[in-house]
Design a protein around this nucleic acid. Structure first.
Lengths: 118, 118, 118, 118
DNA sequence: GTGGTCTAGACCACA
DNA sequence: GTGGTCTAGACCACG
């Protein structure tokens, strides 16, 4: 995975895992790889991976059973909320940005429409 | 102006000025305030403001006349390109993000449509 | 290192490092000292050193791994191009200068020849 | 005349006038244009032109007769020395630079030879 | 320990 | 007055 050097790696990893969770490619309640394995998979420092995981835990996306491993939350509503939040953030940032450079509602919608066709 | 503490102030200032340029609220060739004045306006340190300005100059958005002041580029094509770039970035990031959380083209378009009505 | 007071220190440091790179005394891909160490070595302020390094990074001579350190580019072609550029600049400035004060090609070549024997 | 933004304009003007003097395109003892006229010719601020002229006077290249105007020095030895100095500076800087990037005497001479043929 | 950013305050060259 | 550079010292995110 390629990281954008301007944003913290652990945030990018968190985003990546969240995406897997909301798309179901990491299923509800499923066990995730160990931090060590993940750090190798993402090719990042172990500390960085730990940071990403503990933040995800804090957000309720993952939970840990000591001595057993980490798991995706088994609370479906958490996942739904997460998806909604991510979606809202994306949309709001996008619209604010487009309006900020002077585009009208119509122009925004047209631009999205065209871009989606590619 | 309120700054997002997670992204460098000078970048946020650059964004703000770029927006003014692409929306025309800073006209082509127009003189911009002195670095000192801007640093007060944005309420940041002089050095921070200078960093923002010199990066904008490197990007071709501003140019400087020694001992005189800084001006918005008078090359219209630069401004057009800038606007196009900013727009593309927004759209691409948005679409990538939305697809990343598993939304279809139709869902993306619908979501934007609804959000624009608010 | 002694600095010429009429040209910015950070530029002189950049030149110095570039020379080390093109002569190979800083090898391709080699790690360079930390900014802190360099600032002591060159006996300049940390910020000045950072300025020099970030400009070198922008020029592709160095690259940075977050939290790890900075390294000489591992792209050999960049180094070759750099050497060629530095060489061309020197030669062109020199010849332009000499012609500017009215010397013929023959005189220029003779002068260089004599100077090299010292 | 185009100025290099990284070096003071007044220095560039001084260089330009010195070249005219050593090549004889400004003859020994010849009257030079008024500072005002020169500032228009070079398209620079009057202060800048004044700075250039007074430095040239300090260096003995020009001299001023109050109420009359400025003139190129009528001392031929000054001009010869000037030319020699400019020439030496060019050669020394050039050779130092080339050696600094690791070229041998032979390589330096070859490079100059080739460049002169263009 | 690494690089990156920010502030405060000073000095300089240029116009 | 303008922009540009430099220092000193602090804080932060990252690994």
């Amino acid at each position: 995975m390629k990281f954008n050097p301007t944003v913290p790696i652990y945030l990018q990893i968190m985003e990546s895992i969240k995406k897997d969770v909301v798309t179901g490619s990491l299923a509800r309640g499923e066990r995730v790889d160990s931090v060590r394995a993940l750090s190798e998979k993402f090719d990042v420092n172990l500390n960085t991976m730990q940071r990403a995981c503990s933040e995800l835990e804090r957000e309720g996306v993952l939970f840990t059973q000591r001595g057993v491993g980490s798991f995706v939350t088994d609370d479906d509503s958490v996942i739904k909320t997460l998806k909604q939040e991510m979606c809202n953030n994306l949309v709001n940032e996008f619209i604010d940005g487009m309006r900020g450079i002077g585009l009208s509602n119509k122009e925004i919608l047209d631009t999205v429409g065209k871009a989606l066709q590619k």
